[in-house]
């Protein structure tokens, strides 16, 4: 390692330096809007839309207090519920399906997989009217369980595909060894396979959490006052008459916090899971 580094010649090192600089620039370009959102969240309204933008200002928590005064809690609880329950349901359904498709492929496995992913090809907007009418007829409008069902359906195909690729990476020898040792299916699943695919499971769960937490379209169309989720709370601060940049930024910051936290908690698992090198 050290010798290799020493052996790098001048021009190559320079190009490596350029690459690093470029990486940093791209990283900053991508991160800047997020940073600006967080900064704006701590501004007074009057500081938020000055031109040129103001970098130095007296920070305030006024915007965050206003959010809680505006009743942010019910929205967060609704989102938390819809996200948690739908993610659990997705994992509960996706893991056995993925197991069947990865470890014990049956006839037409490819067709089944294609069917799963094809359900994601239809644009949601194309089915919203039927879904809305059906939900209306069965009295399921503005009900958090409607969102749970839809989010589960929405994330299931992706979860099946992801979990299948993780399960496929388990060497067949490991399963054979477990069978040789007399492990039952249940034991094989829980004691042998689960620990091996835990990073993949975490990555899948996080993707589901992110998608459900940020979902706007179903929520805006199917909920009203009882089951409204965080994205709806967020857009409530957008107005065509008036200037509420700071408050909107504060709401956006608050709305993204749970997902950032979830990602941070699962960070270690996630890096392994997402790089797909979990097993080897």
């Amino acid at each position: 390692m050290t010798t290799a580094a020493v052996a790098v010649t001048g021009p190559r090192r320079r190009s490596a330096g350029l690459l690093t600089a470029l990486t940093w620039i791209i990283g900053i370009v991508f991160f800047f809007p997020v940073l600006w959102m967080v900064i704006t969240a701590f501004k007074h309204e009057a500081d938020a839309y000055t031109d040129p933008p103001r970098l130095f200002f007296t920070p305030t928590l006024e915007q965050f207090r206003a959010l809680f005064d505006a009743g942010a809690w019910p929205y967060f609880l609704n989102s938390l519920f819809a996200t948690t329950v739908s993610t659990l349901l997705v994992l509960l359904l996706a893991v056995p399906a993925a197991y069947a498709l990865a470890i014990r492929p049956v006839k037409k496995t490819q067709d089944v997989l294609f069917f799963f992913i094809s359900t994601k090809m239809l644009p949601v907007v194309a089915v919203i009217v039927p879904i809305y009418v059906i939900a209306g007829r069965i009295g399921a409008l503005d009900n958090i369980w409607t969102l749970v069902v839809l989010y589960t359906a929405m994330n299931l195909p992706i979860a099946v595909w992801m979990m299948r690729s993780f399960l496929q990476e388990i060497p067949a020898e490991v399963l054979e060894a477990a069978a040789m040792d007399g492990a039952s299916l249940r034991q094989t699943l829980l004691r042998v396979m689960l620990p091996m695919v835990a990073p993949g499971l975490a990555a899948t769960a996080l993707i589901c959490v992110i998608f459900s937490w940020n979902e706007f379209f179903f929520s805006v169309n199917l909920t009203a006052s009882q089951a409204a989720t965080v994205p709806l709370f967020l857009v409530g601060f957008m107005t065509s008459e008036g200037l509420y940049w700071a408050q909107l930024a504060a709401a956006a910051t608050l709305a993204s916090l749970p997902v950032v936290l979830a990602g941070w908690v699962a960070q270690k698992q996630l890096v392994r899971g997402l790089s797909m090198g979990a097993i080897k």
Binding site: G71, P74, L77, V85, I144, A227
Partner: peptide
């Protein structure tokens, strides 16, 4: 236990709703 917690959360979400 997890489902129980979810159910509790649901009750919570109901009570915490705007109404």
């Amino acid at each position: 236990a997890v489902l129980g917690a979810a159910a509790a959360l649901s009750a919570c979400a109901g009570a915490g709703a705007l109404t």
